Simulated scan of single mutants.
Amino acid sequence: MKKKQKVERDQAARAIKLFAKLLFAGRPHSLTELAKTLRCSKQTILRLVDVIENSYSVYVELSKKGNRNYYQIKKNQRLPTLNLTESELRTLFICSVFSKHLLGNDFFDEATRALEKSIAHLPRQKEFSPELYGVFAPGSIDYTPHQKTMRLLATAMENKKVCKLTYRNLVEAGSKTFYIKPLKIFSSKDTVYLHAQMAKAPGKKYMEPEFDPLLAIHRIKKIEVTGRVFEFPEDYDFEKVFNRNFGIIKEETFKVTVEFSGSAGAYVLERIWSPDQKIVKKRNGNLQLTFSASSEPETIAWILSFGKSAELIKPRKLVKKIKIELKTMVDLYRFSDNYRF
Rank of each mutant, 00 (worst) to 15 (best):
E53V: 12
Y133R: 01
K282S: 09
G307D: 13
P80D: 03
Y70C: 04
S261V: 14
P138C: 03
A196T: 07
V330K: 09
V192K: 02
P123Y: 02
Q72C: 07
T328R: 15
D331M: 12
K189M: 02
T328C: 12
L92D: 04
D50Q: 12
E33D: 08
E270K: 15
R9K: 12
I141F: 03
N54C: 11
L304R: 11
L79H: 06
R90S: 11
A199M: 08
E210R: 02
R90M: 10
V280I: 15
M157P: 00
L102Y: 06
E311W: 08
A111R: 15
L132P: 02
N243V: 03
G262N: 13
S41Y: 07
L89P: 03
H29T: 01
S140Y: 04
S55R: 15
S274D: 06
R219F: 03
F136P: 01
F19S: 02
E208W: 01
F178G: 07
E61K: 10
Y206D: 01
K160M: 04
P213E: 00
F238Q: 08
K148E: 13
Y193C: 12
R334V: 07
R90F: 05
F246S: 05
Y179P: 02
V192F: 10
L23H: 00
K255S: 10
T37K: 01
E234K: 00
R151V: 10
V7Q: 14
Q77K: 12
R90K: 14
K36R: 07
Y339G: 05
I185W: 00
M329K: 10
K36N: 01
S187P: 01
F108C: 09
A12G: 06
H218M: 06
A20V: 09
K74M: 07
F242V: 04
P28E: 04
L84K: 13
P202R: 03
N286S: 14
K42W: 03
D50V: 06
E210Y: 03
H29C: 03
E88Y: 09
S30W: 00
I141W: 01
R316S: 10
E131R: 11
N105S: 12
L304N: 09
G174A: 05
R27W: 00
A301Q: 15
L312F: 08
A301K: 15
T328W: 11
K2W: 05
R244E: 07
N67C: 09
L269M: 13
K189D: 04
F24A: 04
